[in-house]
Design a protein around this nucleic acid. Sequence first.
DNA 1: CATATGACGTGAC
DNA 2: AGTCACGCCATAT
Length: 112
Amino acid sequence: MTELTRRIVAIIGAVPAGKVVSYGQVAELCEHKGSARQVSWTLRTQTNQYNLPWHRVIGASGKISLKNESGALQRERLESEGVEVNNKMMIDLNIYGWHPTPDIVDGILRKS
DNA sequence: CATATGACGTGAC
DNA sequence: AGTCACGCCATAT
């Protein structure tokens, strides 16, 4: 696995329940701004092996990106931990967005 | 090596 | 707020 993938897994695994992050935000926290698509690729391929809280990752606009059944499942899992999702699959990032401080992020990346 | 493919992001309108 | 055209970048083929 590449260094970027390792970091993405570490960051996503550290998102607290009841909070959400965007794909691009995860990329930025990994010091790979602009690699949002790699975050989605990682989620699609590595989720099972690392038991990641994939449902806490959404689009930058606050909208759940998955469609149909997968999206419905993501919504259920989020609501079950207290995150409000409106009828347009949108989440208020001002309330549920995760904004770790740089030192926290540093610890996460260093520890893994 | 050339294209295609995304669970994306952003600016323009 | 919603659409669109690009830009982005690791993998896949």
